[in-house]
Every structure is written in C-alpha cells, then in structure tokens.
C-alpha cells in the first residue's frame, strides 16, 4: 500500500508529467566535420579535371568554363558526398568538412600516372602508336615510318619487331596511340594511388 501511494505521488508531480509527455530530444545539428557537398574555396581552378576523373558517381561533378574561368560544379542529385574530388584536387579548390585539414596535416595526396599496355597477340607491329605519339615526335623528330628510333628517350619504339615501352612516365594521357591503333592493341589507363608526401623540411 505504501509503495502504491508512493508511485501515485511520484507520477502526479508536475515535473514528471511534463517530462513524460513533452520529452523531446534536442534538435540535432550537423557537426562541422560532416562531409557535405563540396563547396568552392577562393583558390583558382586550373582546369586539370582531376576531380572529374576521380569521381565515382556518374554526372556528379563537371568542370565548366565560365567567363574565361574554369570552375567545378557539383550536382546534388548525383553527388554521393564521398569527398574524393576534394582530396584529388591539387589546388584545394573544393572544400568539404575537414577533408582539407586532414590532408594538410597528414600530407596525403593522390598521385596519378598513365599506364601503357600492349597486347602482343593483337599488336601487328605497324608502329602507328610510336609514330603518332606527340611526345615521341617532340623527343625524336626523326621517328617515322616503321616506328623505330635511335633515341632511348622516347616513350615507346619498335624494337626487334615488337613495341617496347621505354618511358611510361612521360605519357600525357592524350590517347592518340589508342585512336591510331588499327587493332586496339595498345591501351592507356590512368592510374591513381594515394601517397603520403615526405615531411616538409623545417
């Protein structure tokens, strides 16, 4: 009986009734470190398209030229807020959450290069790739015809009846060789890898 009275008294307290019926969680605020849609910083965009190339969602980001100025544009209905464009941009044009702070602190970045691969079964040793390559042409203006070259500095040349790739790192990713290849034997791929830059000298 005593406990019954106790409970009735407890539950009739105005404070308890107010708490019970009008309890609400505080309105939740989005923390500042949450990754939102990338926003522009005041840095200048160089139009390197790193953000577009790394974006995993179709049609989420486009680098557009407006009034003689390149600038990325993010489309909210497509963007998945992964923040890769923010990390990939070498200039820090985009910003989202604390990604830029973290990449600055940890000195992380994305390194990209172009990978050339020749399928020897498809390649018919015509040398079109070596001849058409604009970098090859600049390094060795003599390079012509069959794609053989006396220079060791070219990206690729015909050696002993097959394409030999010498300096893959010089490739600019223009894919001229791909379009000129009659057999689709040569393939250009853009490789991206996360790297940690060496510590800045103090």
């Amino acid at each position: 009986m005593r406990s019954f009275v106790y409970y009735v008294r407890e539950f009739l307290r105005p404070e308890w009734i107010r708490k019970f019926f009008f309890a609400r969680t505080a309105p939740l605020e989005t923390p500042s470190y949450f990754k939102g849609y990338p926003t522009r910083t005041e840095k200048e965009c160089t139009g390197c398209f790193s953000c577009m190339m790394i974006c995993p969602a179709p049609g989420a980001i486009a680098v557009l030229r407006k009034k003689d100025e390149w600038g990325p544009e993010v489309y909210p209905g497509h963007c998945i807020r992964c923040g890769l464009c923010v990390e990939a941009c070498p200039e820090g044009v985009l910003s989202s959450g604390r990604i830029l702070d973290v990449t600055d602190r940890d000195r992380t970045a994305f390194a990209s290069w172009y990978h050339l691969e020749v399928d020897d079964n498809l390649c018919m040793r015509c040398g079109n790739c070596c001849v058409s390559c604009p970098v090859n042409r600049q390094i060795d203006p003599q390079l012509a015809g069959t794609g053989t070259s006396a220079s060791d500095e070219v990206i690729m040349r015909i050696e002993g009846g097959r394409v030999r790739i010498l300096h893959m790192e010089k490739c600019t990713g223009c894919t001229t060789c791909e379009t000129q290849c009659p057999n689709r034997a040569i393939r250009v791929a853009r490789m991206v890898e996360g790297v940690q830059l060496p510590e800045a000298e103090a």
Partner: peptide, 10 residues
C-alpha cells in the same frame, strides 16, 4: 540520389 538521378546505377 537514386530516385532523382539513378546515382551509381545510372
């Protein structure tokens, strides 16, 4: 995103 644009399935 999916009902708007299809997102990664587009």
């Amino acid at each position: 995103n999916c009902p708007i644009s299809g997102c990664v399935y587009a």
